[in-house]
Design a binder for these strands. Structure first.
Lengths: 194, 194
DNA sequence: GTCTATATGGTGATAGAC
DNA sequence: GTCTATCACCATATAGAC
């Protein structure tokens, strides 16, 4: 059994296929990623993928699920802890990001074949909803403690935060530079402070 | 000469090709759109497109430029006029949108072949920058008139506004519903008011 | 489990008749 | 200007040997 191998170089073929698919889905999306490209990046032969997965969709599903899990877990690390509501939100917004690569989960929402496939869309939806809900709970804490105005609706503020990040990627990729992403985040933080 | 024909049904073949390309680029992006699909939607034969355009890229370029022009012009209509800064910004944010279809310009930033092609990216960048700059000027007006806090940096607030809209599309398409788009916009407006 | 054929249809473009 | 071949190559998947 090799199911326990976990490092990159000595990983099983199945593992390398999932990792190659994750990279390509991030770079090129679902429509822009061919099984051939995945196999080449994974260093596997044609038939290898169809032994482990029924096809492109099933492999992509495994890849998207894992990426979603990773993102939720990274979000937990940023939002857990006992700082003020503002400081935890700031940590989320100012988190180091590969801005010009975009969000590996959010970018999939622009992929027509992902949105058309309930199974592929589900992990995307779950991940984004999870982040929204965690942020909303922290905003609620801030409202309860008097840190934020009681007029704010936590779910709406949380949606604005996630949208600012997701849209920040759009601005940055349009201009080819990270400034507008950083600007959008600073603008939102300024509004939160005022 | 038929270059002056302008309506949909009686439009020239070249015109129908551009319109078909605009629709498909919106729905499926550049990578997801084939010349064949464009020709079928335009009701044109294979060779027709290569008479008017050098290839897929050149046709897409004409389509993206036109979509960008339309979006800038629609933005002008919303932001021109003499209401308060807040009311004009509100008009922009609350504008009627086909939320689940996403932004016909912003969605192209997630297309690897658009971002890799300077000519295709240029009209995307120009359009998004234009909207940001127009909004920033209005925020500046609001700061000057005392409507907004002088601590706000207009370019950052404008970036947060455009990002909220662009990211709102991501939230909506992830969930398959428009609520989170509306929530994000309402959240941003609440922060602007407070 | 992995490999090398092989198959069917799509992609992006060209050639040349009408 | 538009059409119908035609092309070389890619996308996605299957078959079957090893």
């Amino acid at each position: 059994m090799n199911g326990t191998r976990d490092d990159a170089s000595g990983a099983s073929t199945q593992e390398r296929l999932i990792e190659a698919a994750r990279e390509l889905l991030w770079e090129r999306g679902y429509v822009g990623t061919s099984p051939k490209a995945i196999l080449q990046r994974a260093g596997a032969g044609q038939g290898s993928m169809y032994h482990h997965f029924a096809g492109k969709q099933e492999l992509a599903l495994a890849a998207v699920r894992r990426t979603g899990e990773e993102l939720r877990s990274a979000t937990d690390q940023l939002l857990d802890g006992d700082g003020s509501a503002f400081s935890r939100i700031e940590a989320y917004l100012l988190r180091e990001r590969d801005v010009l690569r975009g969000c590996p989960v959010g970018r999939l929402t622009m992929d027509p074949d992902v949105i058309a496939d309930e199974d592929l869309r589900a992990p995307v939806d779950e991940t984004i909803s999870y982040v929204e809900e965690r942020l909303a709970a922290i905003v609620q804490e801030g409202v309860d403690s008097g840190e934020f105005s009681a007029r704010l609706v936590p779910a709406e503020i949380a949606a604005a935060m996630v949208a600012t990040v997701q849209g920040g990627y759009v601005l940055a990729r349009a201009s080819g530079a990270t400034e507008s992403f950083d600007g959008a985040v600073r603008g939102l933080l300024a509004l939160l402070r005022s």
